[in-house]
Structure formats: C-alpha cells, structure tokens
C-alpha cells in the first residue's frame, strides 16, 4: 500500500460575499501518494490555479482543509515548491541568484548555496548560463531556471501550474520529458508531483493519476489511473482511449 503524502479534504472556495458570491471550487477531495505524478485537468477558469495555490498554502479555502504529511497546512511549508506558468523569475537576479533564493530560508553557508545552485542549473542543462538575467533567456530557458529553483531545495512535493503552457510546442515537449526524468528518478528527493493543466495530451503523457474538473462551481467529474508504460506515444490506441475519455468528460461538463 502506497504511502499517502497529501490529502485534499472537502475544499470549497467562493469569491465575493452574499448575493455576489461566486462558488469556484465545490467540495473537492482527493489524495496523492508517494511517487505519484498526479494531475488535475479542467477547462480554463474552472479554478485549477486556485486549487493548486490552496494546496501550496498561498491562499486559504472557504472551507475544507489540506493535510500534508499528516499535518494541516495554512501557509507555505518550505518543503513544497512550485513551478509557475509565467516562470515567476526575479528579473533583476541572474539565473544562479534566482535559484539560490530558494535556499535562503534554509540556513546554509553561501558556498553551499552556490554549489547546490550550480548543480541544479546543470541538472536542467543550463551550464554556462548562471550569470544570465531572465531577459536574456528564451522562454524555454527561463522555465528551466524555474525548474532548477523548484528542485534545488530538495522539496518533497512539487506543484506545477501549467508549467509548459507558455512555451512553444517543441520546447514544451523537450522540457516535459526532462521534468519527467527529474521527478521519476528516485535519486531525486521529489516524492510526488501535482500538476495542473488544460492540455489533455500533456496530462495523459505524464500522469499516473488524473482527475477531471467541471466548469465552476467545479467538482471532480471523473478520476482515473493511467498505467501505460513510459515514454508514452501520443498516437497509440491505449493513449487515445484515455484522451478520448477525458475529452468526453469535458464535453459532458459543457452541457
């Protein structure tokens, strides 16, 4: 029996109050096990980003709770890290400084921080770019820095909000596999991944488990395990079966 690392318990979230209340998330519950690549898919605006921010402790839900390694969390814990859709790099910091920033709260010596920062950049193929500023990097390279920053602090749980959506297809494809390699490699400390995306193929390509959200007020309308071997080829019938099922869910949710 796999060990449970994260559980999301009856999370609901509304914006506004009284008559103007709009319910975005409606009673969402699921749990994520160790060494699981867990994904959430749903239409644009259904509250995926909101949900992942609640898991990260960046935002509090209207009701329900997040239990991480047996403890309820209300603010960022330090061993959960996140990759953002628009990279969220500090423009005035070099690639290395951006990555090292994630170590700042860990109480390390600066040599240690530099050493680990350089190692993380190497891990994402950015040798030689440590002194580059974000504006000097292409989208793909920026997101590599984003990945390096997310893994450098040896997080247990890695959250990703549309991590490949700002990249062109080729770059996204390449980076997807690199991230996959990084997190599936048991040498890496990352114990589990929660990814959010509206890209169905991408989700099926990477995930062990998938949940599908409806339009707001969003509920879980389907969930499935994907047992296909990696690397998954998008043209194969069993792959297409899974994507077809998700598309069907999403269309049904439209009505």
């Amino acid at each position: 029996m796999a060990k449970k690392i994260l559980s999301v318990e009856s999370i609901s979230l509304s914006y506004g109050q009284g008559k103007q209340e709009v319910r975005i998330l409606d009673d969402i519950s699921f749990s994520v096990n160790e060494y699981e690549f867990f994904s959430i898919v749903g239409p644009s605006g259904c509250g995926k980003s909101t949900l992942i921010r609640i898991i990260a402790g960046l935002q509090s839900p209207t009701s329900g709770k997040i239990v991480y390694k047996g403890r309820e969390i209300a603010s960022p814990t330090g061993d959960i890290s996140m990759i953002f859709q628009n990279f969220a790099l500090f423009p005035w910091k070099t690639a290395l400084e951006n990555v090292m920033l994630a170590l700042e709260s860990k109480g390390m010596s600066s040599e240690e921080m530099v050493k680990r920062g350089m190692a993380a950049l190497k891990e994402v193929d950015l040798n030689g770019f440590e002194s580059a500023y974000p504006a000097e990097l292409s989208g793909g390279m920026k997101q590599r820095v984003g990945v390096a920053r997310a893994i450098v602090s040896d997080p247990d749980l890695l959250l990703m909000d549309e991590p490949f959506s700002s990249l062109d297809d080729l770059t996204a494809e390449q980076l997807r596999w690199e991230v996959h390699k990084l997190v599936k490699d048991k040498k890496m400390p990352v114990k589990a991944v929660v990814m959010v995306s509206h890209n169905v193929e991408e989700i099926v390509e990477l995930s062990d488990r998938i949940i599908v959200l409806s339009r707001p007020p969003s509920r879980i309308i389907d969930s499935m395990d994907v047992k296909l071997p990696y690397p998954r080829s998008r043209g194969r019938r069993d792959f297409l079966n899974v994507t077809a099922r998700i598309y069907k869910d999403l269309y049904a949710g439209e009505k």
Binding site: P76, M82, Q85, F90, L101, R149, S153
Partner: peptide
C-alpha cells in the same frame, strides 16, 4: 506570481524587501 514565488520560498521580511 513573484509574490507567490517569494512566499513559497519563505523569504523573510528583510529578504523580501531587498530581493523583491
């Protein structure tokens, strides 16, 4: 997102002013 990144990385108050 930059503020969120800062929160995720748990930057202290001084560090947040200085770096962000």
């Amino acid at each position: 997102q930059l503020v969120e990144a800062k929160n995720i990385m748990k930057l202290g108050r001084i560090s947040a002013w200085k770096n962000l």
